[in-house]
């Protein structure tokens, strides 16, 4: 079912059903509204904001997504709401167009990135968008060494190239190790994606299953690790 395959018959897609059910047109109060605009007064609608990113991009609640399709949807939807097309329209419509575009941009950036996508799903299911940054316990010795090396680099006399080279080599080894660890975490996340999607494919509406919810704590832990690793990897890159 493609929401963008125009407004004909039952192929209109879930957005159209959804739009009519939720609210009438903000401008003329007609209930003949589509997801994009009012069939009666043609005013642009802001129903995007009633949805979440997975729904608005019509990706389903899947964690492994087709990035080409996502991009395609993003361009198509952006085209429908682009502020350029509303320059001659009333101020309200210009604002809705801007708001919708901002929503789409943020949604695209969120869904494009696997970690952000998973974090967003977790926040949707749990209704809490706070995700902690957490250092993996088994890395503390490495982290300590990294901090020590970073400190030495900061204290270094700029002209001392030989010493800098030496420290950089030390740091590069640690950097590689952090990257490998992060890669492992990402692979673990990916295998959780597969498990989630497997159940999601069989789920017929309703709420997420307990089994699906059971994967969330693991996802959260991995995400908090990758957030921390991103931070320390950036610190290391900035230092050299």
């Amino acid at each position: 079912m493609n929401i963008l395959s125009e407004d004909t018959g039952s192929e209109r897609g879930h957005f159209f059903e959804m739009a009519g059910e939720s609210r009438p047109c903000w401008s003329c109060q007609s209930d003949q509204v589509t997801f994009f605009n009012c069939s009666s007064c043609t005013a642009i609608q802001q129903f995007l904001h009633d949805t979440d990113y997975f729904t608005s991009f019509n990706m389903g609640y899947k964690l492994n997504i087709d990035l080409d399709l996502l991009e395609k949807q993003y361009y198509e939807l952006s085209r429908r709401f682009h502020p350029d097309y509303f320059q001659q329209k009333p101020k309200e419509e210009q604002e809705i167009s801007l708001g919708n575009t901002a929503f789409l941009n943020k949604g695209y950036q969120t869904l494009k990135n696997p970690q952000k996508r998973a974090a967003y799903l977790v926040s949707l299911v749990e209704g809490d968008d706070h995700l902690p940054t957490e250092a993996p316990a088994e890395l503390f010795e490495d982290i300590f060494e990294i901090q020590e090396t970073l400190e030495e680099i900061r204290a270094l006399d700029q002209s001392d190239e030989a010493e800098f080279k030496k420290l950089k080599t030390v740091l590069d080894v640690s950097l590689e190790k952090m990257r490998e660890f992060e890669l492992d975490e990402k692979e673990k996340l990916h295998s959780l994606f597969v498990k989630w999607d497997c159940i999601e494919a069989d789920r017929k509406g309703g709420s997420f299953t307990d089994e699906q919810k059971g994967y969330l704590p693991q996802m959260k832990q991995i995400l908090s690790h990758t957030a921390y690793l991103d931070r320390i990897i950036n610190d290391m890159k900035a230092a050299v």
Partner: peptide, 11 residues
């Protein structure tokens, strides 16, 4: 050598 997961402090 220990660390605080929440803030990344290491000691």
């Amino acid at each position: 050598i220990v660390g605080a997961p929440e803030c990344g402090d290491v000691m």
